[in-house]
Structure formats: structure tokens, C-alpha cells
Simulated scan of single mutants.
Amino acid sequence: MNDRNHRIDHLVTSGTFSLDGGTWDVDNNVWIVGDELEAIVIDAAHDAPAIEAALEGRTLRAIVCTHAHNDHIDAAPALAAATGAPILLHPDDLPLWNQTHPERAPDGELADGQTLTVGGVTLTVLHTPGHAPGAVCLYAPELSTVFTGDTLFQGGPGATGRSFSHFPTIIASIRDRLLTLPPETVVRTGHGDATTIGDESPHLDEWAASN
């Protein structure tokens, strides 16, 4: 790791989530990880100009999609066009991506175990299906942080009541891929407040029994 100042920047953007014929107003967390020179964006939601402004002139190395529900990817093509950064998505979520952006494919694929390095920070891709088939989390051990998208929230797993989702699968993903991380790991979510692995792990059995 280099001696640059690592940064996690956070902004909340607002828009709508649409799936299975319904539309809901939502607020999304957008995470920017890197240092004072370069960054990646995790989930380009709703407002490409606001996200670009939050970069503060840094080089954007990639736009990483934790999954392809429209509220997490709707601003990705515009941000890519403005910055030249590639859009990265797990290929299992291409059917969802194509519902929102049929005319514009992602630029690269995410795979379980893949590492992304930006500003001296390494993020490991964890494939965590359940909320969506290609859902991923990004674990940055140097920052004691995992970016979970909509897989794990403060208080439980992401929703699984709509198309392309599966409750037993998300429980298995959380149990096997996330709750095995150190308990002090900060969970930075796709919506709402952050939590920690240690705060969430005692509740796995009650979540599993709740469906």
C-alpha cells in the first residue's frame, strides 16, 4: 500500500426503482473509493453530474455495479460518457441491465475473487447472489470495509420478493461470504445507514426463519 491518503466519499442521490411493473421513490448511497488522484464509483445512481462533481477532478478508473437494478445503474452510461471510465458488472445480471440499458452493454465483467486496485486500495469482488443473480459485494480489508449494495443492510438481508431474486440464496451468500469477515468490518450499504458485520451476524438465524 502506498502512502497516499485513502478516501471513502459518500453521497445520496434520489430517483426511482422500477421492476415487475411497479415504481417506487428511493434514495441511493453512492460510494467513491480511492485517494486524492483517482477513484472508483460504486453504483452510479440517478445523478451523473452530482457524482462527477463529487470526484473533484480525480481520474475515475471504473464504475462498479453491485447489481443491475435500475436505481443502481441508471446514471452509469452518462457518467461513463463524461469520464471515459468503464462500467463493470457481473454477467449474471445482464438480463436486468438490459431492461434499463438495452442499447449500451457494460464494458467489462466482474468475477468472484477478482481484485480492483485504486489509489493503493485493493477491493476484492465477492459474488453474493440472492437479491439479484449477479449481485456482488466489494471487500476492502485495508479500510476494514465491505460495500454490500443491496445484499446486506442494517437489520437484515436485501429484498427477495421480485423477479430474479431468491431468499435462500441471499441467506447463503450473507452467511458464507459476509458474516465470515472480521466483526469490526464496516458494512456500507446501497440504501440507508451503515452497520458492522459484528452487529448483524447474531441475527442470521432469525432472518433465515423469517421467510
Score class of each variant (00 low, 15 high):
2 N>K: 11
3 D>Y: 13
4 R>Y: 13
5 N>D: 08
9 D>P: 01
10 H>G: 04
13 T>E: 06
18 S>H: 05
20 D>S: 14
25 D>C: 11
27 D>L: 05
30 V>N: 08
32 I>W: 09
34 G>C: 01
35 D>R: 09
35 D>H: 03
39 A>M: 06
40 I>K: 00
41 V>C: 01
41 V>E: 01
41 V>M: 04
44 A>C: 13
44 A>Q: 03
44 A>P: 07
44 A>Y: 02
45 A>F: 08
48 A>M: 05
48 A>C: 06
48 A>S: 10
49 P>I: 09
52 E>L: 13
53 A>W: 06
54 A>V: 00
55 L>A: 00
55 L>W: 00
55 L>G: 05
56 E>W: 07
57 G>L: 13
57 G>P: 00
59 T>A: 14
61 R>G: 08
63 I>C: 00
64 V>C: 04
67 H>A: 02
68 A>R: 04
73 I>D: 06
74 D>I: 10
74 D>F: 06
76 A>N: 00
76 A>M: 01
79 L>V: 04
81 A>T: 15
83 T>N: 07
84 G>R: 05
84 G>K: 10
88 L>G: 04
89 L>S: 02
90 H>Q: 10
92 D>Q: 11
92 D>E: 14
94 L>G: 02
94 L>F: 03
95 P>R: 04
97 W>I: 09
97 W>S: 10
97 W>K: 08
98 N>K: 15
99 Q>G: 05
101 H>K: 09
103 E>Y: 14
104 R>C: 06
105 A>Q: 11
107 D>G: 11
108 G>D: 13
108 G>T: 02
108 G>R: 00
109 E>Y: 06
109 E>C: 08
109 E>Q: 12
110 L>W: 07
111 A>F: 12
113 G>A: 01
113 G>W: 14
114 Q>N: 01
115 T>R: 07
117 T>C: 09
118 V>F: 02
120 G>C: 06
121 V>T: 15
124 T>M: 10
124 T>Y: 07
124 T>I: 00
128 T>S: 10
128 T>P: 01
130 G>P: 00
132 A>T: 11
132 A>H: 09
136 V>T: 12
136 V>M: 01
137 C>E: 01
137 C>K: 02
139 Y>T: 00
142 E>Y: 05
142 E>P: 14
144 S>M: 12
144 S>D: 14
144 S>W: 12
144 S>G: 15
144 S>N: 15
151 T>K: 00
152 L>A: 00
153 F>W: 07
153 F>H: 10
153 F>N: 01
157 P>W: 02
160 T>K: 06
160 T>H: 09
161 G>R: 11
163 S>T: 15
167 F>T: 05
167 F>W: 13
168 P>W: 12
169 T>I: 07
169 T>H: 07
169 T>R: 11
170 I>F: 02
171 I>D: 08
172 A>S: 12
172 A>G: 05
172 A>K: 08
172 A>T: 14
176 D>Q: 13
179 L>G: 00
181 L>S: 05
183 P>G: 07
184 E>R: 15
186 V>H: 09
190 G>F: 08
190 G>A: 11
198 G>F: 06
200 E>S: 04
201 S>C: 13
202 P>G: 04
204 L>D: 05
205 D>F: 01
205 D>E: 15
206 E>Y: 09
208 A>I: 03
209 A>Y: 06
